[in-house]
Write a protein that binds this DNA or RNA. Structure first.
Lengths: 220, 220
DNA sequence: AATAAAATAGGTCCTTAGTCCTAATTTTGA
DNA sequence: TCAAAATTAGGACTAAGGACCTATTTTATT
């Protein structure tokens, strides 16, 4: 059981019932966000899905903003947990770890949750500082892992180079979401995308040279 | 001046005043969508931005859904126009054309319009069939160009292979949007991303083999 | 069992939003 | 010029949504 870092009212969640209620609320909110998008997410719908009254929902989350903040943290934490499990199960070879992570991420793009949640998060992050913070914290952790692996695979690169290659690789994979995600037109091409991605990114990580990344004219 | 394929009421836009009004409406809607997201886009805000009444706005667009549909078409058409101009100005060499298009797309990610509009479009397309259609029509046209160039660069590939490589490349670039777009944390790394992308994608297009894409076991 | 805190229900208030209606005003072509 | 069509303003209606308040019930602890 993951500890919940809640932005709710002081006192809430002290009893078991309250703890479970919070999980129910987050779960229901997550489902509605995934199925109907942020514009379809309302306090009333959430309360109805959980089977409680709006008054009770506001007891746990004073504002919708508070709820959204906890919701994003909740989903992001769950994703990171799985990500770390995958890495830890992938053995010691950096190449194998990288391939395992690439395959996990691309396979995961095709789950309904990821297909719908992340584009919603990207859109939210354009206007909501909280969403933006959560999102970039998440991807920062993912990039950190990739950066380590890239530097092992290609010791000639500087830390800055590794960071940039990691940024390119992780961002590229996310880009597949709206196209090969669950229910998307190219969903059936996911296996091909996985093969192209593993090969292309591994080749990139192993062969790119520092001089090919850095700017030639010193742009400070 | 681009012809407008409008989903508005019959009769509207017959006078010059009406034609200009429609453009004002689409422009204002686009600005609000980009600045406040879909959840912040309301008929009243649009009317106020244009300087007309809600009654008048509904004279042009009976429903918000109709307006959104035209709005997405409008922005997408504008993007495609620019895209085609870039290709036509890039000379005859497929490699040069491809590099020019990659650089255009990545540079464009860093405009406020693209940074904010496209994630919104991806999110909308999860729940709005109309948005989904417009989005995939757009990317289909972009992929078609890349597919042609890839097949010229690598004649050993089948049409299906070219399509998949084009899908991978175009989707990968889009993935950079939430990270190196205008105002995003890695905006300053855009030049590095451009260098990595042009090199990586060109290498991929020229060197990938059909056997590395196709599934080994017939997963029909 | 008693008690204090937590959890809940049910209602209210106010704002925003989408849609529609009708009477005026403006535009354009015959 | 003048009549038909297009454009416009200014409301009105209804629904949905966020937030708040209070009385009641439930829970856990002593």
């Amino acid at each position: 059981m993951r500890a919940l870092k809640l932005q709710n009212r002081p006192g809430t969640g002290a009893y078991n019932k309250g703890q479970e209620r919070i999980l129910q609320i987050l779960q229901a909110s997550r489902d509605i966000l995934i199925e109907q998008g942020y514009s379809g997410l309302s306090m009333r719908k959430i309360a109805a899905a959980v089977g409680i009254t709006i008054g009770n929902l506001h007891y746990y989350y004073r504002t919708k903003k508070d709820l959204l903040s906890d919701l994003l943290d909740h989903v992001i934490e769950g994703y990171l947990d799985t990500f770390n499990v995958v890495r830890n199960n992938a053995g010691n070879s950096p190449a194998k770890q990288m391939v395992a992570l690439i395959e996990f991420i691309i396979d995961d793009l095709n789950t309904q949750e990821t297909t719908n949640f992340f584009p919603e998060l990207w859109a939210l992050s354009n206007h909501d500082e909280n969403a933006s913070d959560g999102m970039h914290t998440l991807y920062g952790k993912v990039r950190k892992v990739f950066k380590e692996l890239i530097l092992e695979l290609n010791p000639s690169l500087s830390g800055e180079d590794g960071e940039q290659v990691a940024l390119f690789i992780t961002a590229s994979m996310e880009g597949l979401t709206p196209f090969v995600g669950r229910g998307k037109p190219w969903e059936s091409k996911l296996p091909g995308m996985k093969r192209i991605a593993t090969q292309s990114f591994l080749h990139l990580a192993q062969n790119i040279k520092s001089s090919e990344i850095a700017s030639l004219q010193g742009t400070k």
